[in-house]
Design a protein around this nucleic acid. Structure first.
Length: 463
RNA sequence: UCCUCGAUAGCUCAAUGGUAGAGCACUCGGCUGUUAACCGAGUGGUUGCUGGUUCGAGUCCAGCUCGGGGAGCCA
Protein backbone atom coordinates (compact mmCIF):
# COMPACT_ATOMS: atom_id res chain seq x y z
CA UNK A 1 0.00 0.00 0.00
CA UNK A 2 1.30 3.41 -0.98
CA UNK A 3 2.12 6.15 1.48
CA UNK A 4 0.94 9.27 -0.23
CA UNK A 5 0.83 13.00 0.37
CA UNK A 6 -2.18 15.23 -0.09
CA UNK A 7 -0.25 17.17 -2.71
CA UNK A 8 0.38 14.02 -4.77
CA UNK A 9 -3.29 13.07 -4.54
CA UNK A 10 -4.40 16.48 -5.82
CA UNK A 11 -1.73 16.82 -8.50
CA UNK A 12 -1.71 13.20 -9.78
CA UNK A 13 -5.22 12.12 -8.87
CA UNK A 14 -5.54 9.44 -11.57
CA UNK A 15 -2.60 7.51 -10.08
CA UNK A 16 -4.40 7.21 -6.76
CA UNK A 17 -8.08 7.01 -7.62
CA UNK A 18 -9.64 3.69 -6.60
CA UNK A 19 -6.32 2.70 -5.03
CA UNK A 20 -5.54 2.04 -1.41
CA UNK A 21 -3.38 4.69 0.20
CA UNK A 22 -2.02 5.72 3.57
CA UNK A 23 -2.09 9.37 4.59
CA UNK A 24 -0.79 11.02 7.75
CA UNK A 25 -1.83 14.50 8.79
CA UNK A 26 -3.61 16.79 11.19
CA UNK A 27 -7.35 17.21 11.68
CA UNK A 28 -8.66 20.58 10.56
CA UNK A 29 -12.32 19.82 11.34
CA UNK A 30 -14.55 16.86 12.14
CA UNK A 31 -18.24 16.60 11.25
CA UNK A 32 -19.71 13.47 12.70
CA UNK A 33 -23.18 11.93 12.75
CA UNK A 34 -24.49 8.86 14.52
CA UNK A 35 -23.20 6.32 12.01
CA UNK A 36 -20.63 8.18 9.88
CA UNK A 37 -18.54 11.32 9.73
CA UNK A 38 -16.13 13.47 7.79
CA UNK A 39 -12.66 14.68 8.65
CA UNK A 40 -10.80 17.42 6.82
CA UNK A 41 -7.18 16.29 6.99
CA UNK A 42 -4.23 18.55 6.18
CA UNK A 43 -0.83 16.91 5.91
CA UNK A 44 1.21 20.06 5.41
CA UNK A 45 2.23 19.25 1.86
CA UNK A 46 -0.63 21.11 0.24
CA UNK A 47 -2.83 24.10 0.89
CA UNK A 48 -6.06 22.14 0.53
CA UNK A 49 -7.33 19.40 2.81
CA UNK A 50 -8.27 15.84 1.99
CA UNK A 51 -11.75 14.77 3.07
CA UNK A 52 -11.81 11.52 4.99
CA UNK A 53 -15.08 9.59 5.25
CA UNK A 54 -15.43 7.20 8.16
CA UNK A 55 -18.23 4.87 9.16
CA UNK A 56 -19.41 2.69 12.01
CA UNK A 57 -17.41 -0.29 10.83
CA UNK A 58 -14.21 1.26 12.23
CA UNK A 59 -13.26 -0.42 15.49
CA UNK A 60 -12.59 2.97 17.06
CA UNK A 61 -15.53 4.80 15.41
CA UNK A 62 -16.77 6.43 18.63
CA UNK A 63 -13.32 7.74 19.48
CA UNK A 64 -12.75 9.09 15.97
CA UNK A 65 -16.13 10.84 15.94
CA UNK A 66 -15.10 12.86 18.99
CA UNK A 67 -11.70 13.96 17.75
CA UNK A 68 -10.76 17.58 18.17
CA UNK A 69 -8.99 19.94 15.83
CA UNK A 70 -5.25 19.37 15.33
CA UNK A 71 -5.16 15.72 16.38
CA UNK A 72 -2.57 13.91 14.27
CA UNK A 73 -3.77 10.80 12.43
CA UNK A 74 -2.68 8.09 10.06
CA UNK A 75 -5.50 6.98 7.79
CA UNK A 76 -5.56 3.90 5.62
CA UNK A 77 -8.26 3.54 3.01
CA UNK A 78 -9.35 3.82 -0.58
CA UNK A 79 -9.42 7.02 -2.59
CA UNK A 80 -12.85 7.24 -4.24
CA UNK A 81 -14.85 9.79 -6.19
CA UNK A 82 -16.85 12.02 -3.89
CA UNK A 83 -20.58 12.65 -4.28
CA UNK A 84 -20.15 15.97 -2.46
CA UNK A 85 -19.95 19.18 -4.44
CA UNK A 86 -16.88 20.69 -2.80
CA UNK A 87 -14.36 17.99 -3.63
CA UNK A 88 -13.81 15.60 -6.51
CA UNK A 89 -12.49 12.78 -4.36
CA UNK A 90 -12.29 11.61 -0.77
CA UNK A 91 -10.60 8.92 1.25
CA UNK A 92 -12.90 6.18 2.51
CA UNK A 93 -11.25 5.13 5.74
CA UNK A 94 -10.65 1.49 6.59
CA UNK A 95 -8.37 2.15 9.53
CA UNK A 96 -7.61 5.33 11.46
CA UNK A 97 -4.76 5.47 13.96
CA UNK A 98 -4.37 8.37 16.34
CA UNK A 99 -0.76 9.54 16.43
CA UNK A 100 -1.20 12.37 18.91
CA UNK A 101 -4.19 13.75 20.75
CA UNK A 102 -4.83 17.48 20.99
CA UNK A 103 -5.77 18.91 24.37
CA UNK A 104 -9.12 20.65 24.66
CA UNK A 105 -7.46 23.97 25.50
CA UNK A 106 -6.05 24.19 21.95
CA UNK A 107 -6.40 27.90 21.19
CA UNK A 108 -7.14 27.78 17.47
CA UNK A 109 -10.81 27.63 16.57
CA UNK A 110 -12.27 26.80 13.19
CA UNK A 111 -13.45 30.37 12.80
CA UNK A 112 -11.34 33.31 11.75
CA UNK A 113 -8.86 34.72 14.24
CA UNK A 114 -7.40 38.19 14.25
CA UNK A 115 -3.78 38.44 13.11
CA UNK A 116 -3.02 40.25 16.38
CA UNK A 117 -4.10 37.22 18.39
CA UNK A 118 -2.26 34.81 16.12
CA UNK A 119 0.97 36.75 16.69
CA UNK A 120 0.73 35.84 20.37
CA UNK A 121 0.74 32.15 19.39
CA UNK A 122 3.41 32.29 16.70
CA UNK A 123 4.26 28.65 17.38
CA UNK A 124 0.76 27.54 16.33
CA UNK A 125 -0.19 30.02 13.64
CA UNK A 126 1.45 28.12 10.73
CA UNK A 127 -1.45 25.65 11.17
CA UNK A 128 -3.94 28.24 9.90
CA UNK A 129 -4.86 28.71 6.27
CA UNK A 130 -3.40 32.19 6.00
CA UNK A 131 -0.05 31.42 7.56
CA UNK A 132 0.21 28.10 5.80
CA UNK A 133 -0.15 30.05 2.55
CA UNK A 134 2.19 32.87 3.56
CA UNK A 135 5.04 30.65 4.61
CA UNK A 136 4.81 28.29 1.69
CA UNK A 137 4.96 31.33 -0.59
CA UNK A 138 7.88 32.70 1.40
CA UNK A 139 9.80 29.47 0.90
CA UNK A 140 8.99 29.34 -2.79
CA UNK A 141 9.92 32.94 -3.43
CA UNK A 142 13.26 32.48 -1.65
CA UNK A 143 13.90 29.60 -4.01
CA UNK A 144 12.73 31.64 -7.00
CA UNK A 145 15.18 34.40 -6.14
CA UNK A 146 18.09 31.98 -6.03
CA UNK A 147 16.84 30.36 -9.24
CA UNK A 148 16.59 33.72 -10.98
CA UNK A 149 20.14 34.73 -10.14
CA UNK A 150 21.71 31.30 -10.55
CA UNK A 151 20.15 30.87 -14.01
CA UNK A 152 21.87 34.11 -14.96
CA UNK A 153 25.26 33.02 -13.69
CA UNK A 154 25.28 35.14 -10.52
CA UNK A 155 27.48 33.91 -7.68
CA UNK A 156 25.86 33.71 -4.25
CA UNK A 157 28.14 35.33 -1.66
CA UNK A 158 27.69 34.84 2.06
CA UNK A 159 28.52 38.20 3.54
CA UNK A 160 29.24 38.41 7.28
CA UNK A 161 26.55 38.79 9.90
CA UNK A 162 28.95 40.31 12.42
CA UNK A 163 30.62 43.39 11.07
CA UNK A 164 33.37 45.67 12.26
CA UNK A 165 32.36 48.52 10.00
CA UNK A 166 29.33 50.75 9.93
CA UNK A 167 28.42 49.76 6.38
CA UNK A 168 26.78 52.94 5.21
CA UNK A 169 25.45 54.67 8.25
CA UNK A 170 22.19 52.96 7.31
CA UNK A 171 20.81 53.05 10.81
CA UNK A 172 21.22 52.17 14.46
CA UNK A 173 23.07 48.90 14.94
CA UNK A 174 22.92 46.07 17.45
CA UNK A 175 26.19 45.78 19.34
CA UNK A 176 27.87 42.40 19.48
CA UNK A 177 30.06 41.98 22.52
CA UNK A 178 31.29 39.46 25.06
CA UNK A 179 32.26 42.14 27.57
CA UNK A 180 30.61 42.07 30.98
CA UNK A 181 28.08 44.87 30.62
CA UNK A 182 27.95 45.35 34.39
CA UNK A 183 31.69 45.76 34.67
CA UNK A 184 33.29 46.54 31.30
CA UNK A 185 37.04 47.21 31.02
CA UNK A 186 37.82 50.93 30.74
CA UNK A 187 40.69 52.93 29.30
CA UNK A 188 42.48 55.91 30.88
CA UNK A 189 39.67 58.29 29.93
CA UNK A 190 37.10 55.99 31.53
CA UNK A 191 35.63 54.94 28.19
CA UNK A 192 34.80 51.31 27.50
CA UNK A 193 37.92 49.60 26.16
CA UNK A 194 36.78 47.58 23.18
CA UNK A 195 40.32 46.41 22.50
CA UNK A 196 39.58 43.92 25.28
CA UNK A 197 36.42 42.72 23.51
CA UNK A 198 36.23 39.41 21.62
CA UNK A 199 37.24 40.87 18.27
CA UNK A 200 39.53 43.51 19.74
CA UNK A 201 37.27 46.25 18.39
CA UNK A 202 33.65 47.38 18.35
CA UNK A 203 31.44 45.04 16.38
CA UNK A 204 27.78 45.02 15.40
CA UNK A 205 25.21 42.99 13.52
CA UNK A 206 25.24 43.90 9.85
CA UNK A 207 22.79 46.42 8.40
CA UNK A 208 23.70 45.51 4.82
CA UNK A 209 25.99 43.15 2.97
CA UNK A 210 26.51 45.61 0.16
CA UNK A 211 30.05 46.84 0.78
CA UNK A 212 31.28 43.29 1.28
CA UNK A 213 29.48 41.95 -1.76
CA UNK A 214 31.00 44.67 -3.94
CA UNK A 215 34.40 43.11 -3.34
CA UNK A 216 33.21 39.82 -4.79
CA UNK A 217 31.53 41.67 -7.63
CA UNK A 218 34.98 42.85 -8.67
CA UNK A 219 36.03 39.20 -8.97
CA UNK A 220 32.93 37.33 -10.18
CA UNK A 221 31.24 40.13 -12.19
CA UNK A 222 27.68 39.30 -11.13
CA UNK A 223 27.00 38.39 -7.52
CA UNK A 224 24.27 38.56 -4.89
CA UNK A 225 23.78 38.13 -1.19
CA UNK A 226 20.59 36.93 0.42
CA UNK A 227 20.62 36.89 4.18
CA UNK A 228 19.47 38.43 7.43
CA UNK A 229 20.13 42.06 8.29
CA UNK A 230 19.51 43.96 11.48
CA UNK A 231 18.42 47.47 12.34
CA UNK A 232 18.06 48.72 15.90
CA UNK A 233 15.78 51.58 14.83
CA UNK A 234 12.88 52.45 17.08
CA UNK A 235 10.46 52.05 14.20
CA UNK A 236 6.90 51.11 15.09
CA UNK A 237 5.25 50.42 11.78
CA UNK A 238 3.75 47.54 9.86
CA UNK A 239 6.71 47.65 7.47
CA UNK A 240 9.72 47.53 9.80
CA UNK A 241 11.35 44.74 11.72
CA UNK A 242 14.62 44.66 13.63
CA UNK A 243 15.60 41.45 11.85
CA UNK A 244 14.74 41.04 8.21
CA UNK A 245 16.12 39.41 5.08
CA UNK A 246 17.58 41.30 2.21
CA UNK A 247 18.56 40.44 -1.34
CA UNK A 248 21.44 42.50 -2.66
CA UNK A 249 22.70 41.85 -6.19
CA UNK A 250 25.75 43.66 -7.51
CA UNK A 251 26.66 43.76 -11.20
CA UNK A 252 29.95 44.88 -12.80
CA UNK A 253 30.47 46.62 -16.14
CA UNK A 254 26.95 47.88 -15.63
CA UNK A 255 25.26 51.20 -15.06
CA UNK A 256 22.05 52.41 -13.40
CA UNK A 257 19.94 51.44 -16.42
CA UNK A 258 21.26 47.86 -16.36
CA UNK A 259 20.53 47.83 -12.64
CA UNK A 260 16.91 48.88 -13.12
CA UNK A 261 16.40 46.39 -15.94
CA UNK A 262 17.65 43.62 -13.65
CA UNK A 263 15.34 44.72 -10.82
CA UNK A 264 12.33 44.82 -13.13
CA UNK A 265 13.11 41.41 -14.62
CA UNK A 266 13.56 39.94 -11.14
CA UNK A 267 10.29 41.35 -9.80
CA UNK A 268 8.37 39.94 -12.76
CA UNK A 269 10.14 36.61 -12.45
CA UNK A 270 9.27 36.04 -8.81
CA UNK A 271 5.64 37.10 -9.29
CA UNK A 272 5.27 34.68 -12.19
CA UNK A 273 6.96 31.96 -10.17
CA UNK A 274 4.52 32.34 -7.30
CA UNK A 275 1.47 32.44 -9.56
CA UNK A 276 2.57 29.34 -11.48
CA UNK A 277 3.82 27.24 -8.58
CA UNK A 278 1.40 28.11 -5.79
CA UNK A 279 -1.92 28.78 -7.53
CA UNK A 280 -4.05 27.60 -4.57
CA UNK A 281 -2.27 29.89 -2.12
CA UNK A 282 -2.37 32.86 -4.49
CA UNK A 283 -6.08 32.36 -5.12
CA UNK A 284 -6.64 32.30 -1.37
CA UNK A 285 -4.84 35.65 -1.00
CA UNK A 286 -6.82 37.15 -3.84
CA UNK A 287 -10.08 35.98 -2.32
CA UNK A 288 -9.54 36.61 1.39
CA UNK A 289 -6.61 38.95 1.93
CA UNK A 290 -6.57 41.43 -0.95
CA UNK A 291 -9.31 41.32 -3.55
CA UNK A 292 -7.23 43.40 -5.97
CA UNK A 293 -4.16 41.18 -5.74
CA UNK A 294 -4.38 39.48 -9.13
CA UNK A 295 -5.24 42.72 -10.84
CA UNK A 296 -2.26 44.43 -9.23
CA UNK A 297 0.19 41.62 -9.96
CA UNK A 298 -1.02 41.23 -13.55
CA UNK A 299 -0.48 44.94 -13.98
CA UNK A 300 3.12 44.55 -12.80
CA UNK A 301 3.84 41.53 -14.99
CA UNK A 302 2.35 43.07 -18.10
CA UNK A 303 3.47 46.67 -17.86
CA UNK A 304 6.81 48.25 -18.53
CA UNK A 305 7.91 49.94 -15.31
CA UNK A 306 7.93 53.72 -15.46
CA UNK A 307 11.18 55.68 -15.13
CA UNK A 308 11.33 59.22 -13.89
CA UNK A 309 14.03 61.41 -12.43
CA UNK A 310 13.69 62.85 -8.97
CA UNK A 311 13.66 66.33 -10.50
CA UNK A 312 10.75 65.44 -12.82
CA UNK A 313 8.96 63.76 -9.92
CA UNK A 314 9.19 67.03 -7.96
CA UNK A 315 7.62 68.86 -10.94
CA UNK A 316 4.75 66.37 -11.08
CA UNK A 317 4.16 66.71 -7.34
CA UNK A 318 4.24 70.50 -7.51
CA UNK A 319 1.64 70.47 -10.28
CA UNK A 320 -0.51 67.89 -8.49
CA UNK A 321 -3.77 69.15 -7.13
CA UNK A 322 -3.16 67.53 -3.74
CA UNK A 323 -2.94 68.80 -0.22
CA UNK A 324 0.31 67.23 0.89
CA UNK A 325 1.13 67.39 4.57
CA UNK A 326 4.82 67.79 3.82
CA UNK A 327 6.00 70.49 1.40
CA UNK A 328 7.32 69.44 -1.98
CA UNK A 329 10.69 71.04 -2.53
CA UNK A 330 13.72 70.08 -4.61
CA UNK A 331 16.34 68.86 -2.15
CA UNK A 332 13.90 67.31 0.31
CA UNK A 333 13.47 63.57 0.30
CA UNK A 334 10.16 62.25 -1.01
CA UNK A 335 7.71 61.53 1.78
CA UNK A 336 5.52 58.44 1.92
CA UNK A 337 2.52 60.48 0.75
CA UNK A 338 4.52 61.72 -2.26
CA UNK A 339 5.70 58.24 -3.19
CA UNK A 340 2.18 56.89 -2.93
CA UNK A 341 0.80 59.67 -5.10
CA UNK A 342 3.36 58.94 -7.80
CA UNK A 343 2.92 55.19 -7.94
CA UNK A 344 -0.76 54.84 -6.98
CA UNK A 345 -2.43 57.93 -8.41
CA UNK A 346 -0.24 59.33 -11.15
CA UNK A 347 1.37 56.33 -12.83
CA UNK A 348 -0.78 53.56 -11.34
CA UNK A 349 2.08 51.09 -11.72
CA UNK A 350 5.62 50.50 -10.46
CA UNK A 351 7.91 53.44 -11.04
CA UNK A 352 11.65 53.94 -10.72
CA UNK A 353 12.62 57.33 -9.36
CA UNK A 354 16.22 58.13 -10.24
CA UNK A 355 18.94 60.72 -9.78
CA UNK A 356 18.27 62.00 -6.29
CA UNK A 357 20.09 64.99 -4.76
CA UNK A 358 23.45 63.81 -3.40
CA UNK A 359 22.77 65.20 0.06
CA UNK A 360 19.93 62.78 0.80
CA UNK A 361 21.73 59.65 -0.41
CA UNK A 362 24.63 57.48 0.71
CA UNK A 363 28.31 58.29 0.17
CA UNK A 364 29.00 55.43 -2.27
CA UNK A 365 26.51 56.48 -4.93
CA UNK A 366 27.96 57.71 -8.21
CA UNK A 367 28.04 61.47 -8.72
CA UNK A 368 26.25 62.63 -11.87
CA UNK A 369 27.79 65.18 -14.22
CA UNK A 370 25.59 67.94 -12.81
CA UNK A 371 27.51 67.55 -9.53
CA UNK A 372 24.18 67.88 -7.67
CA UNK A 373 22.56 64.48 -8.08
CA UNK A 374 23.69 60.88 -7.79
CA UNK A 375 22.87 57.80 -9.87
CA UNK A 376 20.41 56.38 -7.34
CA UNK A 377 17.14 54.61 -7.95
CA UNK A 378 14.17 53.68 -5.79
CA UNK A 379 11.45 51.37 -7.04
CA UNK A 380 8.02 52.45 -5.81
CA UNK A 381 5.11 50.04 -6.08
CA UNK A 382 1.41 50.63 -5.43
CA UNK A 383 0.35 49.42 -1.99
CA UNK A 384 3.75 49.04 -0.38
CA UNK A 385 5.72 52.09 -1.50
CA UNK A 386 9.49 51.80 -1.65
CA UNK A 387 10.41 48.16 -2.19
CA UNK A 388 13.87 48.44 -3.78
CA UNK A 389 16.64 50.98 -3.28
CA UNK A 390 19.79 50.93 -5.34
CA UNK A 391 22.40 52.87 -7.22
CA UNK A 392 25.32 52.89 -9.56
CA UNK A 393 28.36 52.94 -7.29
CA UNK A 394 31.07 55.57 -7.39
CA UNK A 395 33.95 53.82 -9.14
CA UNK A 396 36.28 56.86 -9.32
CA UNK A 397 38.76 56.86 -6.43
CA UNK A 398 39.03 60.64 -6.08
CA UNK A 399 35.26 61.20 -6.17
CA UNK A 400 34.67 58.53 -3.53
CA UNK A 401 37.45 59.82 -1.30
CA UNK A 402 36.00 63.33 -1.58
CA UNK A 403 32.52 62.15 -0.50
CA UNK A 404 33.93 60.21 2.44
CA UNK A 405 35.71 63.35 3.63
CA UNK A 406 32.70 65.62 3.03
CA UNK A 407 30.46 63.42 5.13
CA UNK A 408 32.99 63.23 7.96
CA UNK A 409 33.50 59.48 7.57
CA UNK A 410 36.86 57.96 8.48
CA UNK A 411 38.86 57.00 5.40
CA UNK A 412 40.75 54.30 7.30
CA UNK A 413 37.46 52.47 7.96
CA UNK A 414 36.95 52.10 4.22
CA UNK A 415 40.50 51.23 3.12
CA UNK A 416 39.50 47.94 1.55
CA UNK A 417 36.46 49.48 -0.10
CA UNK A 418 38.66 52.20 -1.60
CA UNK A 419 41.15 49.56 -2.75
CA UNK A 420 38.52 48.22 -5.16
CA UNK A 421 38.78 51.55 -7.00
CA UNK A 422 42.56 51.29 -7.23
CA UNK A 423 42.86 47.75 -8.51
CA UNK A 424 40.99 47.48 -11.76
CA UNK A 425 37.82 49.15 -10.64
CA UNK A 426 35.00 49.44 -13.10
CA UNK A 427 31.53 50.87 -13.24
CA UNK A 428 29.12 48.73 -11.26
CA UNK A 429 25.71 48.92 -9.68
CA UNK A 430 23.41 47.08 -7.33
CA UNK A 431 20.29 47.25 -5.25
CA UNK A 432 18.68 45.96 -2.10
CA UNK A 433 15.27 44.28 -1.98
CA UNK A 434 13.61 43.80 1.39
CA UNK A 435 12.51 40.18 1.21
CA UNK A 436 9.58 40.62 3.60
CA UNK A 437 8.32 43.61 1.67
CA UNK A 438 8.40 41.53 -1.48
CA UNK A 439 6.37 38.83 0.28
CA UNK A 440 3.90 41.45 1.49
CA UNK A 441 3.55 42.73 -2.05
CA UNK A 442 3.04 39.23 -3.45
CA UNK A 443 0.48 38.13 -0.89
CA UNK A 444 -1.38 41.32 0.02
CA UNK A 445 -0.49 40.82 3.69
CA UNK A 446 -0.10 44.24 5.22
CA UNK A 447 1.95 43.65 8.36
CA UNK A 448 5.59 42.55 8.23
CA UNK A 449 5.03 40.65 11.48
CA UNK A 450 2.78 38.28 9.55
CA UNK A 451 5.30 37.34 6.87
CA UNK A 452 8.20 36.46 9.22
CA UNK A 453 7.89 33.25 11.22
CA UNK A 454 9.12 34.80 14.46
CA UNK A 455 9.22 38.57 14.05
CA UNK A 456 11.67 40.67 16.02
CA UNK A 457 10.32 44.16 16.53
CA UNK A 458 10.65 46.88 19.13
CA UNK A 459 9.91 45.34 22.56
CA UNK A 460 9.21 41.94 21.08
CA UNK A 461 11.55 38.95 20.78
CA UNK A 462 9.22 36.20 21.98
CA UNK A 463 9.61 32.65 20.73
C1' U B 1 9.97 58.83 18.85
C1' C B 2 5.20 61.66 17.61
C1' C B 3 -0.30 61.65 16.60
C1' U B 4 -4.60 58.67 17.19
C1' C B 5 -7.79 54.59 18.62
C1' G B 6 -8.23 50.53 21.77
C1' A B 7 -7.76 46.51 25.98
C1' U B 8 -14.55 42.70 28.98
C1' A B 9 -14.97 34.47 28.95
C1' G B 10 -9.98 30.46 25.19
C1' C B 11 -11.54 33.56 20.47
C1' U B 12 -14.76 37.59 18.11
C1' C B 13 -17.63 41.15 20.36
C1' A B 14 -22.15 43.45 23.47
C1' A B 15 -23.46 45.90 28.19
C1' U B 16 -27.47 54.71 29.71
C1' G B 17 -22.54 55.40 36.32
C1' G B 18 -27.01 50.74 39.07
C1' U B 19 -27.79 42.19 38.82
C1' A B 20 -21.37 41.33 33.45
C1' G B 21 -24.13 38.88 28.33
C1' A B 22 -24.21 36.61 23.08
C1' G B 23 -22.00 33.72 19.06
C1' C B 24 -18.02 30.43 18.32
C1' A B 25 -14.55 27.08 20.94
C1' C B 26 -14.71 23.26 24.86
C1' U B 27 -17.75 19.11 27.62
C1' C B 28 -22.26 16.01 27.29
C1' G B 29 -26.46 14.38 24.33
C1' G B 30 -29.13 14.03 19.39
C1' C B 31 -28.82 13.50 14.06
C1' U B 32 -27.85 8.28 7.61
C1' G B 33 -23.53 12.60 2.84
C1' U B 34 -21.41 16.75 5.77
C1' U B 35 -18.65 21.30 3.53
C1' A B 36 -16.02 27.04 9.13
C1' A B 37 -22.19 20.89 9.19
C1' C B 38 -26.70 21.18 12.00
C1' C B 39 -30.12 20.81 16.75
C1' G B 40 -30.38 20.78 22.41
C1' A B 41 -27.99 21.43 27.20
C1' G B 42 -23.77 22.62 30.25
C1' U B 43 -18.85 24.61 31.82
C1' G B 44 -16.43 29.16 31.53
C1' G B 45 -15.06 36.36 34.30
C1' U B 46 -9.77 39.55 39.79
C1' U B 47 -13.64 43.65 32.94
C1' G B 48 -4.84 44.86 31.16
C1' C B 49 -2.16 47.09 35.84
C1' U B 50 -1.91 50.97 39.86
C1' G B 51 -4.39 54.78 42.08
C1' G B 52 -8.49 58.45 42.23
C1' U B 53 -13.85 60.54 41.89
C1' U B 54 -18.70 58.42 43.54
C1' C B 55 -23.69 55.71 47.94
C1' G B 56 -22.21 52.72 43.72
C1' A B 57 -17.11 52.19 38.28
C1' G B 58 -16.47 47.42 32.84
C1' U B 59 -18.31 52.57 32.08
C1' C B 60 -15.70 58.88 34.55
C1' C B 61 -10.32 60.90 35.74
C1' A B 62 -4.70 60.26 36.08
C1' G B 63 -0.38 57.37 35.36
C1' C B 64 1.64 52.87 33.48
C1' U B 65 1.81 48.35 30.28
C1' C B 66 0.53 46.10 25.85
C1' G B 67 -1.81 46.18 20.98
C1' G B 68 -4.09 48.44 16.22
C1' G B 69 -3.94 52.50 12.51
C1' G B 70 -1.11 56.75 10.67
C1' A B 71 3.70 59.54 10.51
C1' G B 72 9.08 59.99 10.97
C1' C B 73 13.47 56.75 9.75
C1' C B 74 14.09 53.00 6.13
C1' A B 75 14.27 47.75 3.25
Amino acid sequence: MKKATVKEIYRQTEQFLNQKVIISGWVRTVRASKAFGFIELNDGTFFKNLQIVFEENLVNFKEIAKLTVSTSLTVQGQLVESPGSNQAFELKAEKIEIDGHCDSDYPLQKKRHSFEFLRTIAHLRPRTNTFSAVFRIRSMVAYAIHKFFQERGFVYVHTPIITGSDAEGAGEMFRVTTLDINNPPRDEQGKIDFSKDFFGKETNLTVSGQLNVETYCMAFKNVYTFGPTFRAENSNTARHAAEFWMIEPEIAFADLRDNMDLAEEMMKYIINYALENAPEEMEFFNKFIDKNLFERLDNVINSKFEHITYTDAIDILLKANENFEYPVKWGNDLQTEHERYLTENYFKKPVFVTDYPKDIKAFYMRMNDDNKTVAAMDLLVPGVGEIIGGSQREERYDFLEKRINELGLKKEDYWWYLDLRKYGGTKHAGYGLGFERAIMYLTGMNNIRDVIAFPRTVKNADF
